[in-house]
Nucleic acid binder design. Structure first.
Lengths: 134, 134
DNA sequence: CGGCATCCTATGAGATACTG
DNA sequence: CAGTATCTCATAGGATGCCG
């Protein structure tokens, strides 16, 4: 199915092969995964409810789905305690922790360039108000 | 009738507080943007059709939408040539180019850790086949 | 060629209700 | 508590057609 994602030959006949990092983006930056990973990374091991409270707007259904994916991909570790009431804890895995520098880079990029993005938007919006040749 | 055609649905309203990098992720890693930016960064200035050919599976509608968003956010530059037939070229902006190291980091992470992800998946799948306590 | 305008559907994801 | 199970709805995005 998927071959070497970081191949040197830039043949892009395949869907995603126009961009070698696409599969990675898919697992790391799919919806809700960033807040989840970020929270687990900064807050440490958390119970399901605690995690849910952190990411206030997420529903338990979606949170469960995302956690399953992250667990499946080895980025998050799930620990089930047979108790009454049941207790389940989630923590970031070693593999997941290797993403920290990446996230830091991203945060850094944001702090440096976000203003530029907003300026670009304002400019674009202004130019869009006036009828012009597209 | 026409609303803001370039408004990207904010993937996060609240999660922003749980995850500071969420807005950035939204503009850089929303669907299709990675292949587009990657291609423009490596291939340089391209016409619409050329770009479309590179990212083979994308439809022109979606490509247009994504390009508008990227243009709006200042990551790509659109140049319109009044000719017959019309010629439109897209290139990555200086701001967009600042993403290169980030993408490189991502590619590096992939080359190092992707195997681990696949192993985790295999393990998970295997464990899932056997009845176990969830 | 580089798009919009339409139409249409598959999927994501919210709301709600219910269990071990 | 930590989920499932449904249901519904919005929307991302594909297919098609037309036009300057």
């Amino acid at each position: 199915m998927r071959q070497d994602a970081v191949t040197s030959t830039p043949r892009s006949l395949d869907p995603r092969q126009a961009c070698p990092i696409d599969p990675v983006v898919d697992i790391i930056f799919s919806r809700w995964t960033t807040p989840i990973l970020w929270t687990l990374n900064s807050r440490g091991r958390l119970r399901f409810v605690e995690l849910k409270r952190e990411i206030s707007t997420i529903t338990s259904k979606v949170l469960t789905e995302r956690l399953r994916q992250l667990e499946r991909d080895g980025l998050v570790i799930r620990t089930y305690h047979r108790e009454i009431p049941p207790r389940v804890e989630y923590e970031i895995s070693d593999l997941g922790r290797t993403l920290a520098p990446l996230f830091a880079t991203l945060a850094e990029w944001a702090s440096v360039n976000w203003e530029q993005v907003e300026k670009a938007r304002a400019t674009y919006e202004a130019a869009n108000s006036a009828p012009s040749v597209r």
